[in-house]
Design a protein around this nucleic acid. Structure first.
Lengths: 244, 244
DNA sequence: CGTGCGGTTGATCCCTTTCAAGGATTGTGG
DNA sequence: CCACAATCCTTGAAAGGGATCAACCGCACG
């Protein structure tokens, strides 16, 4: 269920107010941002930015999921980042990006023109700080993913993916059930994220289902039946290795 | 050939003066840093920091190569970053790191105690800016590596690795020959970086050698015989996709 | 009621891993 | 200076996990 978002939404009531790039801002700073922002929406599957494009705007993801991906000459593609609500697109001091950004689900972005935003970053330490934190969080996530891509088995990849998704989603939206959640990605997109083929993704999902670790009603609605078993299947050590 | 470095080396003469965290500093700022810095050296193979350690110092790599790595419960390990001269260890606002840092070769670090350094970062926009740039560079590198780990074949991985290494090394040190360079890592370390086994690394190296793409005299000294063929073997498109 | 898209399942193949043995190089101590 | 050990590297044979190729299912939608 999506909340209708328009340019009229006030920052103070924004669902990502406390985690996005504006998290540290006081009221004055917030009203500066409020004066600059515009909302853009994208339908599932739509491209948001192409590799090599001039970066005319930067943005926070307000609703939905977007993906960063890279493609080899022969068409093999690999997702190199998943943007959930509060994640940031674009970077100060870079006029271009080196990957494609695509809407995975319907997406709402809170956009700022790049040039004025960069000026604001220079004048507003709170924003600069938060931007740095977000970049470092992304770096941590990227490194976890490198371990997954380089060394984990298909089964471990799937288990890790589900676990990550549950963790990030649970706090984001009020999930319907205890460990139930909605999977907004197709098997093919998941495969591109995990460095697998869609067939392998399907097989591993069904294998975890047969073992009673997860179950799903609709093909897009999962329930984690046995959280401990799921964690066990990730290959990670006890504390999960994830920083909260 | 290593230059002897002691605490007495002046920043103005430092080999990484123009690329490290201090790159943007003016003379005043530089003398502040100069007053804080101490050199530490580590022998090849020595641990520099362990995962979960309290981060008491941050540092720039002055000489040598260090590696960031993560390990699964059962011992599988994956390098998640390679630190060459001018790269930075540690991050503002984080008291801990989530990976091990190990000296791959003999390493010289230019260290700063974390707390005072963080204060300096807050007061010195030039340093904060540069730190942000370095973080974003690392993020770009991490994403290139995710594509490699997730989608490239063993052959492509090796070719990409050599290419990356030649590119970064050539500007760093004046290489002996045109495309000759010194490989400071063992087959095992390379395997951990590329998500392969050491046997596969060995086989692919020798395969590229048989094809006349590279040659090596000493097992640690490579020459790229056919740069175009090497690039062709990376799977990347024409311009290489690497940002300089 | 067909068509298309996403998903499942099966059979086969192949690249990389695994297991194993031997070769090369370096360093150390007698 | 040589013997020996420790590392690092190479090479071969076999096994296996995931990819590939292919057929089919089920649901949404026109």
């Amino acid at each position: 269920m999506q909340i209708a978002l328009t340019a009229a939404v006030r920052c103070a009531e924004c669902p990502i107010r406390h985690r996005a790039v504006c998290a540290r801002c006081d009221d004055d700073e917030l009203s500066l941002l409020e004066g600059m922002k515009t909302y853009k929406t994208f339908k599932a599957g739509q491209p948001i930015l192409w590799r090599g494009d001039d970066l005319v705007f930067v943005a926070s993801v307000v609703q939905g999921v977007a993906a960063l991906s890279k493609t080899l000459e022969d068409g093999r593609t690999q997702m190199v980042g998943l943007l959930l609500p509060s994640d940031f697109i674009g970077r100060p001091g870079r006029g271009q990006i080196d990957f494609d950004v695509t809407a995975t689900t319907d997406v709402t972005l809170c956009c700022f023109d790049r040039k004025p935003f960069e000026k604001l970053v220079d004048d507003t330490p709170h924003v600069a700080h938060r931007l740095m934190e977000l970049a470092l969080d992304e770096l941590d996530a990227a490194r976890d993913w490198m371990l997954l891509l380089g060394r984990k088995t298909a089964r471990e990849k799937i288990a890790t993916f589900i676990q990550m998704f549950v963790r990030r989603t649970h706090t984001d939206e009020q999930a319907a059930g205890p460990d139930q959640f909605n999977m907004p990605m197709t098997r093919d997109q998941i495969a591109n994220y995990l460095g697998l083929t869609l067939e392998t993704v399907s097989r591993q999902f069904n294998s975890l289902k047969k073992e009673g670790v997860i179950s799903f009603g609709d093909r897009k609605t999962f329930t984690v039946v046995d959280m401990a078993a799921l964690h066990n299947a990730t290959g990670d050590d006890a504390d999960g290795g994830m920083i909260d």
